[in-house]
Design a binder for these strands. Structure first.
Lengths: 233, 233
DNA sequence: CCAAAAGTGTTCTTTATACACCCATGT
DNA sequence: ACATGGGTGTATAAAGAACACTTTTGG
């Protein structure tokens, strides 16, 4: 029996992939980017972008590469989430995946869908179709992670455009934390941290008092962190 | 050229291992369990227990199996830490490791060192020898993780014997958080959460007023969590 | 002039911090 | 009797929570 497979080892090895949960925020709604699978298994089902890790890249670089290849997104916030390794998580055989999550402003980036005949689309996290593999488990963990993290690290700004109003910022926190927040207390708490720069620019063409735009002072935040500052909202 | 290697694939695959940072607490000191490597690479250097993931086990089960094989420890708290995948992290080739951390009471368990000619020993986290591979990086991340987590989840009790004094509990928090704590305020905060059961038992044979023993009410904690309770210290 | 969201302070309650003396036990 | 760590309460400061009216703008 001839063996045409070229890469041989003394012991069996699981395949190693990455998957990336990409969150976007759209003024009112937290969304995730899904790709419709064009091949079996789970053909026609939606899944997170991802693929096999190559031998000359670490998993984070692999996740970034797949992200760019499948959606056109690059240079966005990305962080390791968890490694999923259940023996039967992929019907094709043993596949271990290192899952990442990424945050992107929907206003700033529009994914280039359909690069390779795969449809890409944003779905509200409250209206997710049936997902391929164990991707529902991955999504639950990603949601849990950002919910826990947004209060203690300024990751929320990655989901907003560079200029944003206080109401947009508050809606983001309300959606992620799944709880209503008091407008005055929220403003007070954020302004007290002194990490927002008030811009000389207001909303245009809204049928109410125009809100002021703010931006996040990332430089100042990083300097404060070095001095022991802890972000908390 | 004949190939004796039996497991062949269309594309190259990294090897997949687990490593486990085991923390123990010894009345005054936070320690980690290290194994002295008997073979190259890094022969004679200290490393965390770990090994290759088998095809019929997920990474957590693999970490638990290696833990038991190399130290005799089982049924202890264990949780995934991070996956380390740098291309050059192992001189033998491409090896990706899923790192875990475990917590154990030193009083309760003594590891059975030297099962397979490998020496196992506890080292204070403030006096760690040179480690093999990227294990120093893994340790830093594990320390950072428990430092962040001990304030918001009751993982500290995993490091203590079932019965402990308030002073032992406080010392644990002081060592992990690397900061002194006020004795009265610490007691007050913990007692207010009402998660400690005061036992009818005191220290024996100490040359000062004997401290009362307490134990953690895990059942009550789990019930409170279901009602939305958040542990915080 | 009406609808819709922006902007703004004060009071009250809860939580955090700082701090010192007496007690029990073994040597 | 003394050295050692155990146990306890109060006063002050800081932070969090609750809450309503006026402003601006477009339609």
């Amino acid at each position: 029996m001839e063996n045409k497979q070229k890469y041989c080892y003394d012991y069996p090895r699981p395949a190693l992939t990455t998957d990336c949960v990409i969150f976007g925020f759209d003024e009112t709604d937290l969304k995730v980017l899904l790709i419709e699978r064009g091949i079996e298994p789970f053909k026609g089902k939606w899944a997170f972008p991802g693929g096999f890790v190559q031998m000359d890249e670490n998993t984070e670089d692999g996740a970034k590469r797949e992200l760019f290849e499948e959606t056109g997104l690059k240079d966005i916030f990305i962080e390791q989430l968890y490694t999923f390794s259940d023996v039967d998580r992929d019907p094709r055989g043993r596949v271990v995946t290192v899952a990442y999550y990424a945050l992107v402003s929907l206003n700033k980036f529009a994914p280039t869908a359909g690069d390779d005949a795969n449809k890409a689309a944003w779905f509200s996290v409250r209206d997710i179709p049936t997902l391929a593999f164990d991707h529902e488990k991955i999504l639950r963990m990603a949601l849990y992670r950002i919910k826990g993290k947004i209060r203690y690290q300024p990751i929320g700004f990655e989901l907003l455009p560079e200029k944003f109003t206080f109401t947009e910022l508050q809606h983001l926190y309300e959606v992620v934390l799944e709880t209503p927040l008091d407008r005055r207390n929220f403003r007070k708490k954020f302004l007290n941290m002194d990490l927002l720069i008030e811009l000389d620019e207001k909303q245009q063409g809204v049928a109410h008092k125009a809100a002021n735009y703010y931006k996040f002072d990332k430089m100042k935040y990083e300097q404060l962190v070095l001095k022991g500052f802890n972000f908390e909202i």
